[in-house]
C-alpha cells in the first residue's frame, strides 16, 4: 500500500467528514438550543438536493443551484418550525421523535409527488470537474477539494457566528437558560425559528453539494442522518466544536476502516473471506468508535450536559 494511496484516502476521509459536519452542525445546534430531536433533518438535506437539481436543470448554473438549495431548505425549515416544531418544545422527546418522523414521511412522499420516483440529474459544473495533481503526485478530484474548502469555510463562519456576534451570544445563552434569556427581552421564538432555519439551510447546502457526486433521490437523507447523530453523540450534544471534531473522526474512521480492515484480515485469512469479514467489520467501525468514546466520556468529547 503506497503512501500516495494513504494520503488520498485521508483526503477522502476529510472530505466525508466536513460534509457530515454540515449536517451535524445544524442537528447539534437545534438539539442544544431548543432541546429538540429533529429526525426530519435528513429530509431538509433531500430538499436542498432536489431544489439544486431543479434549478440547475432550469438555469444550468451550479452556483444558482447552491443558493436555491440553501434558500429552499432554510425556508422549509422555517415553515416546519413555525407550523409543527413550535408546539413540541414542551413535549417529551418521544412526542418530538414521533412528530419529526411523520415529517420524514410527509417530505418523502411530497417530494415523490412533485418530482416522481426516479433519481434526478445533478452534475458537477465544468469548472470544477476532473482531477488535479497535488504535490506528491496525488491525482485528486478538484470538486472534492472544493467540498473540503466549503466545509472548512462554513465551520469558520459558524465559529465566528457563535463566538463573535450578538446572535451567537443569544444562541449560547438560550442553550444555558432560556427563561432568563426571554426575561431579558430577547424574542425567543424568533431566535428559535432563526436557529432552525440556519440548521436546515446548512443541511440543504450539504445535500446539494453531495448530490452533485451522488444520486439525488427520495430517501437520500436518512443514511446521512444516522451518521450525523453518531457525530453529535461522539462530539457532545450542543457543541459546534464537538460536531466538527466528531465529524472528522467519523469520516476518517469510516473511510480508512473500509480500506485497512480488509487488508489487515488478508494477513491471516484467505482473500475472499478477508474482504467479506473486513467489510462487515468496517461498517461497524464508527459504532465501535462511538461506544469507546461514550465509555471514556459519557457526555461526548465536548458535551456540557451529562
Amino acid at each position: 500500500m503506497s503512501l500516495v494511496l494513504i494520503a488520498e484516502q485521508v483526503l477522502n476521509g476529510l472530505q466525508f467528514g466536513v460534509m457530515l459536519f454540515l449536517m451535524a452542525a445544524g442537528l447539534t445546534l437545534i438539539f442544544g438550543v431548543m432541546g429538540l430531536i429533529n429526525l426530519a433533518h435528513g429530509s431538509l438535506y433531500m430538499v436542498g438536493a432536489f431544489a439544486a437539481a431543479a434549478v440547475a436543470g432550469a438555469t444550468g448554473s451550479f452556483l444558482l443551484a447552491l443558493v436555491a438549495a440553501l434558500a429552499a431548505a432554510a425556508l422549509a425549515g422555517a415553515i416546519v418550525e413555525m407550523v409543527v416544531i413550535r408546539r413540541l418544545y414542551a413535549a417529551p422527546h418521544l412526542d418530538q421523535v414521533l412528530a419529526t418522523f411523520a415529517l420524514i414521511l410527509i417530505f418523502s412522499e411530497g417530494t415523490r409527488w412533485v418530482f416522481g420516483s426516479f433519481p434526478l440529474y445533478l452534475d458537477i459544473p465544468d469548472w470544477l470537474s476532473g482531477p488535479v495533481t497535488l504535490p506528491g503526485g496525488i491525482a485528486y478530484p478538484l470538486y472534492r477539494l472544493a467540498l473540503i474548502g466549503v466545509g472548512l469555510a462554513v465551520a469558520a463562519g459558524l465559529w465566528w457566528l457563535t463566538a463573535r456576534t450578538r446572535l451567537g451570544i443569544q444562541i449560547r445563552a438560550g442553550e444555558n437558560d432560556r427563561e432568563m434569556v426571554a426575561a431579558l427581552g430577547v424574542d425567543i421564538s424568533r431566535l428559535y425559528t432563526l436557529v432552525f432555519a440556519l440548521g436546515a439551510g446548512l443541511a440543504g447546502l450539504a445535500g446539494a453539494l453531495v448530490g452533485a457526486i451522488q444520486s439525488v433521490q427520495v430517501g437520500m437523507g436518512e443514511p446521512v442522518l444516522i451518521l450525523a447523530f453518531v457525530v453529535i453523540v461522539i462530539g457532545g450534544i450542543g457543541s459546534i466544536k464537538g460536531a466538527f471534531i466528531g465529524a472528522l473522526l467519523v469520516g476518517l474512521t469510516d473511510t480508512l476502516g473500509g480500506i485497512f480492515l480488509p487488508e489487515l484480515f488478508k494477513l491471516f485469512m484467505e482473500p475472499g473471506a478477508a474482504t467479506q469479514t473486513g467489510s462487515a467489520l468496517a461498517s461497524m467501525a464508527i459504532y465501535i468508535l462511538m461506544s469507546l468514546v461514550l465509555v471514556w466520556r459519557p457526555s461526548g468529547l465536548f458535551g456540557a450536559r451529562a
Partner: peptide, 8 residues
C-alpha cells in the same frame, strides 16, 4: 453513496 475510497 460515496466511492472515493474504492476509486482510489
Amino acid at each position: 453513496t460515496d466511492y472515493a475510497a474504492e476509486i482510489a
